[in-house]
Design a protein around this nucleic acid. Structure first.
Lengths: 193, 193
DNA sequence: AAAACTGTACCGTTCGTTCGGTATAATTGT
DNA sequence: ACAATTATACCGAACGAACGGTACAGTTTT
């Protein structure tokens, strides 16, 4: 089992139970590694394990979301006036990442639990603002006002995070599915449709 | 100090740190009560304390949100065609409850942490669906289609929950403030403005 | 006096962490 | 080539501290 696989297990556990809710026994059980072995891979202990999980999420954001949104290849085409395709790709990737709404968001879990120290919270804040800025940049390139574009980026994050919370609360992924489906058009509303 | 005040302290702690993040030592320290006293008031221990906190939130929902939305007094007036005033009251109360966005939502914390047992999760689900249904009922009374009305109720919950998450993530209550301000008109859009 | 309440000491368990050590693979010296 | 050394991965056992919870004798309130 590679270290990447261990981190994936850590991510699964932390976003499911939160930082305090995860015990080293659970981690040991889930990874198959003894507690002492965990300290070989993560000398910083539980805190470093949580940071590794956060790193994986932020790397997913960079490679699977930010890169797609910032991609200038499709810009030469019709994507300039109507960037709906980009947002559809974003939503597909987001839907996959959150397992159709059945997964929680590590950022939300760590932030609400206030388990993250300042350094960790800064990395989460960076993630949120980067995602928002990437969306806004696409909309600005399509001719939207910058202030409104940023607002829509925020609204997208609000919709995704809120839908995750509500879907978990209702034990029904339908709200998240509806949000994911409607989001691209919602972001592009009032533009050259 | 009344029991109600103790429960308020419990609510504060649980929504700030989550179920697993709160220890009896913290509770004892924050309430000024010894462990024995805590078990006198809450014989069921930590689980009962968490349930008491949840009960307080759900009671707030009933008395400060559901009741206002279901109030038929203003229905005789212009509220029938334009229920924006009701939603404004709802948002004011919500804004106060979440301390302008600085507080977390206990439902979201418990649901995301998966710390709640089935009975607790059912009460949280009840709260979400009741709030949504109450909003939908107002919109239906104002002439909106039932399916769309329920969707807008869900969107309101999504907006509130998502805005809380984002505001905590960004360490900035501005997104929550904007959502609270825009929500009434957003709920009534396309109606007799 | 009876009831409600609380302080102190304590219980067994589990927490995150560390120690000492083993087995295997890679590297080095000769 | 082979032996000596180092590095990597892993684990059982145990640590002190803190966990949630309990027993019981007081104290306060009524």
């Amino acid at each position: 089992m590679s270290k990447q696989a261990y981190v994936s297990t850590l991510l699964k556990l932390f976003r499911q139970f939160g930082y305090e809710g995860v015990t080293l026994s659970k981690i040991s059980q889930e990874t198959g590694l003894g507690k002492a072995s965990l300290y070989h891979h993560f000398p910083g202990g539980k805190a470093e394990m949580a940071e590794a999980a956060l790193t994986q999420v932020n790397q997913w954001l960079e490679t699977n979301i930010l890169q797609i949104l910032a991609d200038t290849a499709a810009l030469a085409e019709s994507c300039e006036t109507n960037p709906i395709a980009k947002f559809q790709s974003m939503c597909e990737e987001t839907n996959r990442f959150f397992n159709e709404g059945k997964n929680s968001c590590l950022w939300a879990v760590f932030v609400m639990e206030q388990s993250s120290d300042d350094l960790m919270h800064d990395r989460i804040r960076w993630a949120f603002s980067q995602w928002i800025a990437a969306i806004a940049k696409v909309l600005v390139a399509a001719g939207l006002d910058e202030t409104l574009a940023t607002q829509r980026g925020e609204d997208a994050m609000i919709a995704i995070q809120g839908a995750l919370v509500l879907s978990h609360g209702l034990k029904d992924v339908a709200p998240f599915q509806r949000v994911i489906q409607q989001l691209p058009q919602q972001l592009c509303q009032g533009m050259g449709d």
